[in-house]
């Protein structure tokens, strides 16, 4: 079993692992020559199934194993993120699977070059001491430092992962492009806080799960709201885009689109978001949603698919240089029943 790769996009890799880490501490990582899959299945809350093209992270990769050259690992995301962060300014970074004292580890080797006076570049508290910089003058040139980070991992057998399947869901009623996630996050965080504060001051019996109601229609509207005995607050976005369905991706082609739930939803509701009809609604856990929003740091386009009263599925498309290799993170957020 062999895995070795050189990383050319450390920033994206770090942001990816950091976003995933907010949902769960451990990821199932499936390494292949073409694709890298990251899957988080927490005991509660949102699942993530991410499929990345190798090129989006790695420059070169070699994967060899007895099981069709696929390696399955269980990786602690916090350690991986911490290790990758130290490679952000590296001149080169490679990662490989190896064994240390009988324990499999992912070893990240980072080469950094720092010019010798870089550490005195910050003038903090230094301006009043002209002699302080004299220590640097003696050493010249650049320093090359090699950093090795060892992340303990567990190798998963093909049998272990054979039972893990991506959730299946019915065709969505509404699909819509989300507004910038930072905007969405600051509002939903605020709402969640209000819901929690309300639960605290109100009757103590209310469960501590703050429920956000998220709804969208096929006329470019997204609505986020919280309701309680004391208040009802909502924010509505309009003029968002409802992407067209690709006939090649829908069962039954053109006919399938005509029968598609979203086509029927198009007949209902209005573009100003004031109509009561045409909304597909889900009730989600505010805390969990806050964790999902963490993916915004990757800066991808996000399409939300609403299955009314059932589930919310987010597709996060990573921005990539080559349009042909697409990397997608799929978030499965389930809805509470009313």
């Amino acid at each position: 079993m062999r895995f070795k790769a050189s990383i050319h996009n450390v920033a994206t890799f770090t942001k990816l692992t950091a976003s995933l880490n907010s949902l769960g501490p451990l990821a199932w990582v499936k390494l292949g020559e073409e694709q890298i899959c990251f899957t988080i299945i927490p005991e509660q809350g949102t699942q993530v199934w991410a499929v990345l093209s190798v090129d989006s992270i790695f420059e070169t990769i070699s994967v060899q194993s007895a099981a069709h050259n696929v390696i399955n690992l269980e990786v602690p995301l916090a350690s991986l993120t911490r290790a990758l962060k130290s490679a952000l300014n590296a001149t080169s970074a490679t990662i490989r699977l190896t064994k240390k004292d009988g324990v499999p580890v992912l070893a990240l080797t980072i080469v950094t070059t720092t010019s010798s006076n870089a550490y005195s570049a910050f003038p903090a508290n230094n301006d009043n001491r002209p002699d302080a910089s004299s220590a640097d003058d003696s050493s010249g040139g650049s320093r090359e430092t090699i950093v090795t980070q060892e992340i303990p991992v567990k190798v998963l057998s093909p049998d272990t992962v054979a039972g893990l399947h991506e959730p299946r869901c019915r065709e969505p009623d509404v699909h819509i492009m989300l507004p910038p996630l930072m905007q969405l996050k600051s509002i939903s965080d605020r709402f969640t806080k209000l819901a929690l504060a309300d639960a605290k001051t109100g009757s103590g019996s209310v469960a501590s799960k703050p429920r956000l109601e998220v709804a969208a229609n096929m006329h470019g509207c997204l609505r986020m709201s919280i309701q309680s005995d004391a208040m009802s607050i909502s924010s509505v976005w309009t003029d968002l885009i409802n992407p067209d369905l690709d006939p090649n991706e829908v069962d039954g082609g053109e006919a399938g689109i005509a029968d598609h739930p979203s086509t029927r939803m198009k007949l209902l509701g209005t573009a100003d978001g004031r109509s009561k009809e045409g909304w597909a609604t889900v009730r989600i856990d505010g805390r969990d949603w806050g964790k999902v929003m963490s993916v915004g740091r990757l800066g991808g386009r996000v399409v939300a698919c609403f299955c009314h009263e059932h589930a919310l599925i987010l597709y996060v498309y990573l921005p990539s240089e080559h349009s042909d290799d697409e990397s997608v993170l799929t978030y499965y957020v389930s809805s509470y029943s009313a």
């Binding site: 911490r82 320093r143 090359e144 090795t148 060892e150």
Partner: peptide, 8 residues
């Protein structure tokens, strides 16, 4: 994490 920093 086990981190080793090798310095010239």
């Amino acid at each position: 994490l086990v981190t080793a920093v090798a310095v010239n």
